[in-house]
Design a binder for these strands. Structure first.
Length: 152
DNA sequence: GCCAACGTTGGC
DNA sequence: GCCAACGTTGGC
């Protein structure tokens, strides 16, 4: 059992969008970074905890709790010619990009990036490190427990 | 394998 | 819209 922070732009998929989806689940499409892909493909297990983070928006921060709902499988968008996420080097036989499904557990209050930065207990959180851009990062179990406490 | 040029991310 | 930080590409 591991814990993750996963960024989503709310203009693409927000926590409220997720709540409205069938089974409150979304396929985590569009990851085109090898490190983030490897986390999904090689490490994620069904039931892993997810902090659902709103990025590139007015109020960046953690907006809800979710969980990994499937093992990783090929991202279907890599095969769709003309699509933003099309990858000409990927084939169904040798897919390059993978995604898991993510299911909502519950929407929470917004734990803003600002508040996280002001919380000394969270200083080691990957998302707060300088220059961090990875859209998927592991979360230490103690950080997970601390954050869940803040979101009660 | 090096590294300059370019593209992307994402907070501000 | 700016731009720092980082990742990728491709010539050599």
């Amino acid at each position: 059992m591991r814990y993750w922070l996963m960024k989503s732009e709310p203009s693409d998929v927000s926590i409220d969008d997720l709540a409205g989806f069938e089974n409150q689940t979304v396929d985590w499409y569009g990851v085109r970074n090898y490190q983030a892909r490897n986390f999904m493909r090689d490490q994620m297990q069904v039931g892993d905890g997810v902090l659902f983070y709103h990025s590139n928006c007015d109020e960046p921060g953690i907006a809800g709790i979710a969980e990994v709902a499937t093992l990783a499988y090929p991202d279907r968008l890599q095969f769709i010619e003309g699509h933003k996420y099309f990858d000409p080097k990927a084939t169904p036989e040798t897919p390059r990009w993978f995604n898991v499904d993510v299911k909502l557990v519950r929407k929470t209050r917004l734990l803003s990036l600002k508040e996280m930065r002001e919380t000394p207990e969270l200083e080691n959180l990957r998302i707060l490190q300088r220059g961090n851009r990875l859209s998927i990062t592991p979360v230490d179990p103690r950080d997970w427990a601390f954050i869940l406490e803040q979101l009660k």
